[in-house]
């Protein structure tokens, strides 16, 4: 899935996260993660983000995440929403979203 425009999903409320995506200028994938619980759960959050992007087939783009202590299910949902919006994709493949 190719990110073709800037998009945003989520909020900065507690237990949520804000995800901003943008097209890549040099065809690379850059992920910037900040979190209130980065010391305890940074690796876990990063793993969920990586896995979610991989299942969506995202190989290039800028992904900026500000986490406010969200559960894995919220992280998956917000990353997927931002990417789908950024890719202007409305035809969902539920197998890739599970």
């Amino acid at each position: 899935m190719k990110i073709i425009k800037e998009a945003i999903a989520g909020t900065l409320e507690s237990s949520d996260l804000l995800v901003k995506v943008a097209p890549s200028h040099d065809d690379t994938l850059e992920i910037i993660l900040s979190s209130e619980v980065i010391k305890q759960f940074g690796q876990q959050i990063r793993r969920v983000v990586d896995e979610t992007l991989q299942r969506l087939g995202v190989t290039a783009g800028s992904i900026i995440i500000e986490d406010k202590g969200a559960l894995d299910c919220a992280i998956r949902a917000r990353v997927q929403t931002a990417v789908l919006r950024g890719a202007a994709c409305t035809d969902l493949n539920w197998e890739h979203l599970s």
């Binding site: 999903a9 989520g10 299910c73 919220a74 998956r76 949902a77 917000r78 929403t81």
Partner: peptide, 14 residues
């Protein structure tokens, strides 16, 4: 609507 749908989709599987 799109973000809520995905949030609920994943929450249901939690």
């Amino acid at each position: 609507k799109d973000s809520a749908r995905l949030l609920v989709f994943h929450a249901l599987q939690n």
